[in-house]
Amino acid sequence: MTTKPWILGLTGGIGSGKSAAAQHFIDLGVHVVDADHAARWVVEPGKPALARIVEHFGSDMLQADGQLDRTALRNRIFADADERRWLEALLHPLIGQEIIQYLARAESPYAILVSPLLVESGQHRLTQRILVVDAPEQLQVERTMVRDQSSNEQVQAILKAQASREERLRHAHDVLLNDRDLHWLQTEVERLHSYYLTLRGGQI
């Protein structure tokens, strides 16, 4: 009888380095599910969620090839909190179902759910433990501007829509301060991985 893997939630604000941390956990053999990927799967052509989005927001939410026009949708919901709430109410349960199915396939001692909205979306309830990749806000802004070629204002708007740093840290069992280079981040991930392998069910 194999024991079911426990689930670690991995989160962090934009530009914190959570994707780089997740990638290193994957390199160490940990089963990782990315909520952003699940969010893309549920709105693929032919899925009911896409039809509901078009019905609600109109056909200008579709690209010529029938795929969701994410930029158009993002612009609409960032401008209107009610519309954002409508979309979240539609997508969050569907994304949750996708995540649960993918986590169930894990064969590593623990599995990781990576989600930028782990706390806000309620996805943290699927996890037994939470790791927050944290970075000073100024560093988050600089990294994101370089990575996405975006303006300071655009990054600030995204930061405002995400849970505050304090809110994320309040839920954290572990915090990885990622204010140095990639080598430092990977060393910290390896240290945490060794520790997590000693845990049963995510607790000491």
Rank of each mutant, 00 (worst) to 15 (best):
M1R: 06
M1H: 10
T2W: 02
T2Q: 08
T3K: 14
P5L: 09
T11R: 05
G12M: 06
G12L: 04
K18A: 04
Q23V: 03
Q23P: 04
Q23K: 13
I26F: 10
L28V: 00
G29C: 08
V30P: 06
V32Y: 11
V32K: 04
D34W: 10
D34K: 11
A35Y: 08
H37K: 13
A38Q: 05
R40H: 15
W41C: 10
E44T: 11
P45C: 00
G46Q: 03
K47A: 14
H56A: 02
F57T: 01
G58Q: 05
D60M: 13
M61H: 04
Q63A: 15
Q63Y: 06
D69K: 10
D69I: 12
R70Y: 03
R70W: 00
L73V: 12
R74L: 05
N75K: 14
F78A: 10
A81G: 00
A81K: 09
D82L: 09
R84H: 07
R85K: 00
W86C: 06
L87M: 11
A89K: 13
A89N: 14
L91D: 08
L94R: 12
L94C: 00
I95Y: 06
I95N: 09
G96E: 11
Q97C: 08
Q97L: 14
A104S: 12
A106E: 02
S108L: 05
P109C: 03
A111P: 07
I112R: 06
V114Y: 01
P116V: 00
L117K: 04
G122V: 03
Q128W: 01
Q128C: 12
R129F: 02
I130D: 10
V132H: 10
L139I: 13
T144P: 05
V146P: 09
V146M: 14
V146H: 10
V146R: 15
R147Q: 08
R147A: 06
Q149H: 15
N152C: 13
N152S: 10
Q154D: 13
L159Q: 10
K160H: 13
K160I: 11
A163C: 08
A163S: 14
E167W: 04
E167M: 15
R168D: 07
R168K: 08
H171Q: 13
H171R: 06
H171C: 11
A172Q: 10
N178Q: 08
D179Y: 09
R180A: 11
R180T: 15
L182N: 02
H183I: 08
H183T: 12
L185V: 00
E188M: 06
R191E: 04
L192W: 07
S194T: 12
L197A: 12
L199I: 07
G202L: 01
I204S: 01
